[in-house]
């Protein structure tokens, strides 16, 4: 087990240095001196999968692109191993052609990127006047008409709102009204032998919390059988009366 970890260690460094599956494939081709126009699919697929396996052993996050490529290569490999039926007049389709196209295209752009990097190397050491360095010092980049991007507009908007006073805020204290508190209150209000309406209990212009709390309390008291209630018709006054059980139970 230990040996395995050591051997896969080199993969770790390398995998992180790759800019995706195409980059890794190009590396494999170069390492094994394989002609891009004559790729031994089975061999390359195995090599590629080795890397993925090694990365997986190390619990590395493998970008999904690598897995797609691994699947593609596996499919190509299995196709290459199976005997092909060729019908007259039908040309053999090379499954590697599309991959080859991708590799060549990517390789070209990678070469260009290297070229750009050389220019960058040179030009970061050159300072011009008047030059681009105003970009680094001030945030007021001059933008030609019609050239402003969404990002520029967002930047402009941000600079306007930056440092502006905070949105005025106010602390709102939440009042708590528990069921047991309500029961204690109702104890004195619902007196034996008298009828009281729900409206009377909650009082004039009650807060929503008060209505809800007392309503739930009423339901609770009904459940316990401590009060009886009566409502003549929907939305009419709810009349409440204490029962014998209240005094007995409590």
């Amino acid at each position: 087990m230990k040996e395995k970890t050591v051997s896969s260690k080199s993969y770790r460094i390398e995998l992180e240095a790759f800019e995706g599956p195409l980059d890794l494939l190009l590396y494999l081709l170069r390492r094994d001196e394989i002609d891009i126009y004559d790729i031994p699919v089975a061999h390359v697929a195995d090599q590629f999968l080795n890397y993925i396996r090694a990365a997986r052993e190390l619990d590395l996050d493998i970008a999904s692109e690598y897995l797609v490529m691994a699947a593609t290569l596996t499919k190509m490999k299995s196709k290459a191993l199976l005997p092909t039926h060729r019908y007259d007049g039908e040309e053999e389709v090379d499954p590697g052609a599309e991959l080859r196209r991708q590799l060549i295209l990517y390789r070209t752009f990678r070469t260009i990127a290297e070229e750009l990097q050389r220019s960058e190397e040179t030009w970061t050491e050159i300072y011009t006047s008047p030059g681009e360095r105003s970009r680094w010092s001030s945030d007021s980049i001059e933008i030609e008409p019609g050239q402003a991007s969404l990002l520029d507009l967002l930047k402009a908007l941000n600079s306007l709102t930056e440092g502006e006073a905070e949105i005025p805020s106010q602390r709102i204290q939440r009042t708590m009204l528990t069921i047991s508190e309500c029961i204690d209150t109702l104890e004195g209000r619902i007196v034996p032998g008298k009828t009281i309406s729900f409206r009377e209990i909650i009082g004039p212009e009650p807060a929503r919390l008060r209505i809800v709390s007392y309503f739930i309390t009423i339901l609770e008291l009904i459940r316990r059988g401590w009060i009886s209630c009566h409502q003549a018709y929907p939305f009419s006054e709810i009349e409440l009366q204490r029962t014998e059980r209240w005094s007995v139970d409590s």
């Binding site: 752009f109 990678r110 260009i112 990127a113 750009l116 990097q117 960058e120 190397e121 970061t124 680094w136």
Partner: peptide, 20 residues
């Protein structure tokens, strides 16, 4: 402290594709 750093390989490759 004001001059931005160099571009990463990913950024350079992306730059290359967009440029062409």
């Amino acid at each position: 402290g004001r001059k931005p750093g160099k571009l990463s390989r990913a950024a350079l490759e992306t730059m290359a594709v967009i440029a062409y």
